[in-house]
Design a protein around this nucleic acid. Structure first.
Length: 614
DNA sequence: TACATACAC
DNA sequence: CATGGTGTATGTA
């Protein structure tokens, strides 16, 4: 109700113990089921333990910036509103009503979607294989970061995405966070992704029987469209999902939770209602959906993170979806022109996007748009050391590009750095011709391993040559992380429409429901370095990107730059930058058949490969 | 295009 | 001793 009241006090400076936690320290949206610890005490505890770290200092700065921005917009909003006449306000209100009405027309209640989420997945697998752990507080991860915590650990306030060294202290001193648990030692388990992947495959085998086009969002989460299955088998969604969950449990020994709803967004939110080991359905009526949405804190909307939540709170004084809907006019004014505006309007009505599952197909069928590798290490400033790490990253990226299907070649390469101060920088370079592998790499027998190794080494070297100067630019520096990324893949256009995204993924059709008991929520925020899905749709034709350069390719003058002096390369970049984009010509020749660049000495062999020259 | 942000898992 | 890694979308210049 409160209008954008003058925002809460500014972020407490580091050091003030009590009002300490800024909104990001409470990114915890609500007390989890059976958490047994007081959320505020946990936030204060975490803050207290880390307030002097570089990480926290950096976070405080970011938060202050974000907070100031939100408050500024809030103020402008108030001014604008004060200036509006009754007439204007009324007419605006009518306009909004009409817009909501229009959105309502797109509501689709004809389908039944389901989201399945494995309970504390990684921890569950480990405990299954080592039952003696069941009664102990367990965390998957390490002192740096926790991926998943079992429910015992949660009673101590331990959560996914929490730094491990702090979790250790909470378990040793439960009283500090209001937990009645006895002091104990947190058990850490190093993640075993191969094992989790194996279990995930077993669950997917089951999911597939209910929806051959289901979509796996991660190892522990899947989206299914049950519409066809239910029609074919004449069973209720509730029964089908219960059966499916029973089968998952029987097969893997691990429980899961599920949400059922008329669209993916609603199903997703519902899946959180009765975990662990429970399911919840939002019935397919407009009334049920609205009733379900209305009591939801906006933070529960997939796509609404802590920043947007805070903006909505500061600028609109809104906490729940019901309030959001009631404040539609102000939402529009606050986020006008941004995607966020339509996203929020639709979301608070329980509207989402759907189908699409067919197109994306199963599991890893969505073409990736970038590939990267980054590593955190003990802050380092020695150039030689940093160069060595950069080379390792280039090698890893090269290998991953080679292992992709089809093998990748991209026109943009980037270097990411994070200073010991946690300041992050990204520098990218656009190339005329993609760096990477020919689409035929690895095919047609022969050459085999030796050739593969050679090619991988070549790509590694090229990436390094491009990025080493970029790193050089930052010296002197004190870095704690470096990352290498390649994007703008050769055949991106062929698969562009397959891209998925979180918001668009949830925007579009209708919904509804009924339901509702809320239980506890408990995001099992898994994940630490998920294995990258290496499955990519074989992208059809090679709509190669570098049309413009095609001309100089067939005859191709072997461009020499095999090894430009650093400064030289940099200058070239700057020169080319004047016009459109910075593009650098790489060494090697361009294959007249596939357009990919290959080393001169391999040109013949490469081209022959296109003609079945095994 | 380049870069920073936000978000999800 | 001391806050991860991979990927996508979006906003702004």
């Amino acid at each position: 109700m409160a209008t954008g009241s003058s925002a809460p006090s500014a972020p407490a400076p580091p050091g003030s113990g009590e009002k300490s936690h800024l909104f990001n320290f409470t990114g915890i949206s609500a007390n989890k089921a059976g958490m047994g610890a007081d959320r505020k005490l946990v936030a204060d505890f975490v803050y207290e333990k880390s307030k002097n770290s570089q990480y926290t200092q950096h976070q405080l700065e970011l938060d202050a910036k974000q907070q100031a921005r939100a408050e500024l917009v809030a103020k402008e909003l108030r001014i604008a509103e004060a200036r509006m006449s009754e007439i204007e306000l009324l007419s605006e209100r009518r306009k909004i009503e009409a817009e909501l009405e229009a959105l309502e027309k797109h509501r689709d209640l004809s389908r039944t979607h389901c989201v399945v989420d494995m309970d504390m997945f990684y921890a569950a697998v480990e405990i299954r294989d080592q039952p003696s752990l069941a009664s102990k507080p367990v965390a998957i991860g390490g002192l740096g970061m926790i991926s998943t915590a079992n429910y015992v650990a949660r009673l101590y306030g331990v959560r996914a995405a929490m730094p491990g060294f702090i979790a250790v202290e909470m378990v040793r001193n439960p009283a500090a966070i209001g937990s009645k648990m006895p002091p104990d030692e947190l058990v850490f388990i190093t993640p075993n992704f191969a094992k989790y992947t194996q279990v995930a495959m077993e669950t997917r085998e089951i999911f597939r029987q209910y929806d051959p086009h289901f979509r796996a969002m991660s190892l522990d989460e899947a989206y299914l469209d049950l519409t066809d299955y239910l029609a074919a088998h004449g069973v209720s969604a509730e029964a089908a999902v219960q059966e499916m969950r029973d089968r998952v449990k029987a097969r893997t020994g691990i429980t899961c939770s599920a949400g059922i709803g008329p669209n993916r967004m609603v199903a997703k939110i519902a899946s959180d209602e009765r975990k662990p080991d429970g399911q919840s359905q939002v019935l397919p009526t407009r009334e049920a959906v609205l009733e379900f949405m209305d009591r939801l804190p906006v933070r529960k909307l997939p796509g609404c993170g802590k920043v947007l939540e805070n903006q909505i709170s500061i600028m609109l004084g809104v906490q729940t979806c019901a309030e959001l809907r009631a404040a539609a006019a102000r939402v529009k004014r606050a986020f006008q022109g941004r995607k966020t505006c339509s996203f929020l309007m639709r979301a608070c009505l329980g509207l989402s996007s759907d189908e699409l599952a067919e197109e994306g197909g199963e599991v890893g069928n969505v073409a990736r748009k970038s590939l990267s590798c980054e590593r955190t290490f003990r802050a380092e400033s020695e150039p030689a050391e940093l160069r060595g790490r950069l080379r390792d990253l280039c090698r890893q990226v090269s290998e991953d590009m080679a292992a992709s299907v089809p093998p990748l070649a991209g026109r943009v390469v980037a270097l990411k750095t994070k200073a010991s101060s946690f300041e992050v920088r990204n520098k990218q370079i656009s190339l005329i011709q993609p760096v990477g592998f020919s689409p035929n790499f690895g095919k047609g027998g022969e050459d085999g391993r030796e050739h593969a190794e050679q090619e991988t080494a070549r790509v590694t070297q090229e990436l390094y040559k491009l990025l080493e100067p970029v790193l050089e630019e930052q010296f002197p520096c004190h870095l704690r992380l470096m990352g290498v990324r390649v994007s703008s893949f050769r055949d991106q256009r062929a698969t562009l429409d397959k891209g998925q995204q979180l918001i668009s993924f949830f925007q579009s059709k209708g919904s509804e429901q009924q339901e509702g008991p809320s239980a506890g929520a408990g995001p099992d925020n898994l994940n630490t370095g998920m294995p990258k899905p290496q499955i990519q749709e074989a992208n059809v034709i090679d709509l190669d990107s570098s049309q413009e350069d095609q001309r100089d390719k067939s005859r191709d003058p072997p461009v020499q730059s095999q090894s430009l002096p650093k400064g030289c390369l940099k200058r070239v970049v700057e020169r080319l930058a004047s016009r459109r984009a910075k593009r650098i010509r790489l060494s090697g020749v361009c294959c007249p058949v596939c357009g990919v660049r290959v080393p001169e000495d391999q040109a013949n062999r490469h081209v022959n490969a296109h003609y079945g020259d095994q």
